[in-house]
């Protein structure tokens, strides 16, 4: 089964061609990073405008790179949400028009489900599994007994981990994108600053206390006109942020005994996480290749394959995009069309 998938939920215009929920034939990602760097972060209206500029070209390039024609496509899949609504609607309308033009079925896919299924590229998922989702919008532990079955064990009570990284990067004036820059800087520093340890219930996470602490440290040192190495502060923050991920996830591994832990989301690209995870987590770990951690359409095509297996019927052309959207609904678990 050949799937053409579309992902425009934030600032990457991406179209991919995937085969049988496993092989990536092409994955074109038109990044807007240079544009948003000018503004120190993603400007939603500019992101939407850039998507319109690139969208038809990216469709054509994805087909060409995969050496596939539109007629070969069996299914069109598109990120329905969550994300920036203006950006999502560009991809959704483009995908609908393409599907209609070639009389193909179409389905919407949840962005985070896409991130999880990035781990099924070139391999099979082993169930039951525990999924750790770490991104700019999510910090969650999800239990998956089988394909397309999701049960949330824990989530952040306030900021997402990627959001905390971006805010701390901003305080340290590291530029955009903040997370990867903070990760790179931390590598050169020593974690010599004491960081608070948040008391957490169950498998939940919390990052606002840690973030506020870093802000206070910076302000207090500025007031006392003390100099410090920002790399040390970055290293201290990173160690504390990741320890929370390591500990809460390990707690869930011990209680649930998954066959695999899969890590997903933009923060899965973090070098510190990748370097230390095998020492902490006592279970075989899957983590996507670097290029499939950040937003890309290939992961949407892989997820779409399994969603189609669960419910092989085209959605009608009136489905909408949603800025906020939960995938832990009965409808989504059954692979059915999400109306709201």
């Amino acid at each position: 089964m050949i799937i053409l998938s579309v992902e425009t939920s934030c600032d990457e215009t991406s179209v991919a061609i995937t085969l049988d929920g496993r092989t990536v034939l092409s994955n074109v990602v038109l990044s807007q990073i240079d544009t948003h760097t000018l503004y120190g972060g993603v400007v939603p209206e500019i992101a939407s405008r850039e998507h319109v500029k690139g969208i038809t070209h990216v469709f054509k390039k994805a087909l060409k790179d995969a050496a596939v024609t539109a007629a070969d496509v069996d299914l069109v899949a598109v990120t329905q949400g969550p994300g920036l609504i203006g950006s999502l609607l560009v991809g959704i309308n483009a995908a609908k028009a393409f599907a209609y033009a070639h009389a193909k079925p179409i389905i919407g896919v949840h962005h985070i489900v896409g991130h999880m299924y990035a781990n099924a590229i070139n391999q099979s998922l082993e169930f039951p599994l525990l999924a750790l989702i770490v991104s700019g919008g999510h910090t969650e532990l999800i239990w998956m007994p089988s394909h397309m079955q999701f049960e949330r064990l824990g989530k952040t009570q306030d900021d997402a981990i990627g959001e905390a990284y971006d805010k701390v990067a901003r305080i340290l004036d590291l530029g955009y994108p903040g997370g990867p820059k903070l990760d790179a800087l931390a590598k050169t520093g020593t974690a010599r600053f004491a960081m608070p340890k948040t008391q957490l219930d169950g498998y939940d996470f919390s990052y606002s206390g840690l973030k506020s602490h870093v802000i206070n440290v910076v302000h207090n040192m500025a007031q006392r006109e003390e100099t410090y190495d920002p790399a040390d502060l970055a290293a201290s923050f990173q160690k504390a942020a990741m320890n929370q991920i390591f500990e809460q996830t390990q707690k869930a591994i011990k209680a649930y005994h998954p066959k695999r832990l899969i890590v997903a989301g933009g923060v899965a690209a973090n070098a510190y996480l990748r370097a230390h995870m095998k020492d902490v987590w006592d279970v075989p770990i899957e983590i996507p290749a670097f290029e499939y951690c950040t937003d890309n359409a290939a992961m949407i095509g892989i997820a779409a394959y399994y969603q189609w297996q669960a419910s092989p019927k085209s959605w009608s052309f009136d489905f909408n995009g949603f800025a906020r959207m939960d995938f832990l609904t009965e409808a989504y678990n059954k692979g059915e069309e999400v109306i709201r």
């Binding site: 939407s48 319109v52 969208i55 038809t56 539109a70 609504i85 309308n93 483009a94």
Partner: peptide, 17 residues
């Protein structure tokens, strides 16, 4: 802005395909 993009994207795609 959000509105006009939808028509333009759909028209571009249909005309292209």
């Amino acid at each position: 802005y959000t509105g006009v993009r939808m028509g333009v994207v759909v028209a571009k795609m249909l005309a292209s395909e």
